[in-house]
Design a protein around this nucleic acid. Structure first.
Lengths: 199, 199
DNA sequence: CCTACCGATCGGTAGG
DNA sequence: CCTACCGATCGGTAGG
């Protein structure tokens, strides 16, 4: 079947994600990736054009996953009028869901994008900033509406997003807590950090 | 004067911290470090025994700085009886203070310790876990005393600590917000995340 | 702190 | 997907 070629490419990216997460991009050699696939180093180049291409494919796919999950979460929250705390909880749950669905992919997105060069690096930096802006804007809007506690929106967004991204460093499927449970706990922590229930 | 040698060693570590933070340990060559000091690559070995030794010196010093700051903060909070929220705020401020005092050092501690090998890696991992345990215990004790909102202590500690460590990635002296201001904002976010003021 | 140099490994190409 | 191989660079040593 013709699903062979694309699935092979995907297998390379999966193996590379795991290695990049564990050792970092720079400390992972092309031969390391090949060895994990039981092929010779140069054979990898039948499927990819460069080591950085593999990193790009991973980072680009992860960025899209985060963007699409956030789109879905925020537009779902819009269809039923939701306050800022509810929108924040939805955004947090979406973000945690993407990490839990593929922690290797997410971890490489979070930590290894700096090893991209030129236009790709600039492009992914812009997308990271746009993504963080969603958090910042949600927080700023919620503050303006009186739904969220007044604080510095940029600081709050950085606080929340780095807390969430930390999950990519330790999450493993089949651990003590399910992905849903972790998402709930993180959503509660995030909402509490941004609200005060005086009264 | 005999302060020359130690200060040279420290200059190497400072330059290396900045490069390791910016590019990562594996992507920084010994010659990169030497170039930043305007000497030849092999000349570095008059002052250090290996590249990993430099990483170790940085990581070890950072770990001590975090440990000592936490010791001071928690024992100060003990001398005047303080509730869990107050102790958490003190611990957060101490942690943020260490990062702001030397963000390069802190960033290398947070991100590059994995490149240590053998006993050093094991030792620093144990110290990292002991440090995280302080957060977890503070949270668990505060929950038991009814001062903090009930949640999963391990998750809460991971949430808080990764949020704080994120500062090491972006903080720069002379930025929009002072270190004290950032410490205050983060302490507020952390305490709010762990408390509910119902009533 | 320098020059000269080492073996090992790197990402990647040629040519099947 | 393989073998044979490339130039470049790596961390580090010798010997001043």
């Amino acid at each position: 079947m013709t699903i062979e070629a694309p699935s092979r490419r995907r297998a390379i990216e999966d193996v590379a994600s795991a290695l990049f997460r564990e050792r970092g991009y720079a400390a992972t050699s092309v031969r390391d990736i090949a060895r994990a696939l039981d092929i010779q180093g140069p054979s990898l180049y039948a499927h990819v054009t460069s080591k950085e291409d593999v990193l790009w494919a991973i980072v680009d796919r992860a960025a899209s996953a985060f963007e699409e999950a956030a789109d879905r979460a925020l537009s779902a929250a819009e269809s039923v009028p939701t306050d800022a705390a509810g929108r924040l909880a939805a955004l947090v749950r979406a973000h945690v869901g993407v990490i839990a669905a593929d922690p290797e992919l997410a971890s490489v997105f979070v930590h290894e994008w700096r090893h991209l060069s030129g236009d790709r690096r600039a492009a992914i930096l812009a997308r990271r900033e746009a993504y963080e802006l969603r958090f910042r804007r949600l927080v700023a809007d919620g503050m303006a509406a009186g739904d969220l506690t007044s604080t510095d929106p940029a600081i709050a967004a950085a606080f929340l997003l780095t807390a969430l991204n930390g999950i990519a460093g330790w999450y493993r499927a089949g651990g003590r807590l399910s992905a849903d449970r972790i998402a709930d706990l993180y959503a509660d922590l995030a909402v509490r950090a941004m609200t005060e229930d005086h009264r």
